[in-house]
């Protein structure tokens, strides 16, 4: 079983979100990047569990620049076998998906896993786009994934409930909470990661469908109005007349 896991970076959740150059660029000053949690905790760890149970190979792929090799090494330390970096700025989901799909096509993977979404752009776009280019099924937001020969059994969150589905390989799956438990890399893994193969691939030409032209920070919240715990009638009145939400 050959599994390709798509890894992206995202700013550590405690990072200060600020913008520079007239609010057109994300200000990376002092920002610590981590592996996008959905990619690391769920997609990568589940891929490793499948490999440990039935053999095979787990390759990680990222579209990013040299600085992103830090997160690639982290993912290798957790246990991936090898890594691919497509040497380009992932400015647009379509561009990113085309690069990954092109590599996946040339290297015939059985299963491609992505995270549910990147926590910086929250687009949930890349996985479905890869599936369309590869012309294979896509199961989104899976919380459970089991492999039986060439059949995948998955659980998916649906509005207010859960759905169990089956699909044949090859397929693309986006992974959400529930699929696996976070793994902390150990010293042996960290040492081994230094010598695991990392291939650097030139991007293929591709149009950009979208561009982020600017960013806006939300207006600062006005101070919280404190209400006497013994006067819930006042709160209800305020919610009705001032906030107009009930």
């Amino acid at each position: 079983m050959k599994i390709l896991v798509c890894i992206s970076k995202s700013p550590d959740t405690t990072s200060k979100i600020a913008f520079s150059e007239g609010n057109t660029k994300f200000d990376e000053n002092g920002v610590q990047y981590i592996v996008n949690p959905y990619d690391e905790w769920y997609a990568l760890v589940r891929a490793l569990e499948i490999k440990e149970a039935q053999g095979g190979n787990v390759t990680i792929i990222t579209v990013g620049n040299v600085a992103d090799e830090a997160i690639i090494r982290k993912a290798l330390a957790i246990g991936a076998d090898d890594a691919v970096r497509i040497d380009a700025e992932p400015t647009d989901a379509y561009f990113t998906a085309i690069q990954i799909a092109d590599y996946a096509k040339k290297n015939a993977f059985d299963l491609v896993l992505t995270g549910k979404e990147t926590i910086n752009y929250n687009g949930s776009q890349v996985g479905g786009m890869i599936a369309e280019v590869l012309e294979v099924p896509f199961v989104s937001l899976a919380t459970k994934l089991d492999v039986n020969g060439s059949t995948l059994t998955l659980e998916q969150d649906i509005v207010g409930g859960v759905q169990v589905v089956e699909v044949s390989l090859p397929a693309v799956v986006s992974c959400a909470k529930g699929m696996a438990e976070q793994r902390i890399p150990n010293m042996r893994g960290i040492m081994a990661a230094r010598t695991k193969p990392m291939q650097i691939v030139e991007p293929i030409a591709c149009d950009l469908f979208t561009t982020y032209s600017s960013y806006i920070l939300p207006e600062a919240k006005k101070a919280c109005k404190m209400i006497d715990p013994n006067n819930m009638d006042e709160l209800v009145q305020l919610l009705h007349t001032e906030a107009k939400v009930i």
């Binding site: 379509y94 890349v126 989104s140 998916q156």
Partner: peptide, 23 residues
């Protein structure tokens, strides 16, 4: 922007060569 859209809209974006604004 719910479950069906998260699975379908990216596919459609590729198929129609149409840029997708999600969320």
């Amino acid at each position: 922007h719910e479950l069906t859209a998260k699975a379908v809209a990216p596919r459609l974006s590729v198929k129609l060569k149409a840029g997708l604004i999600s969320g």
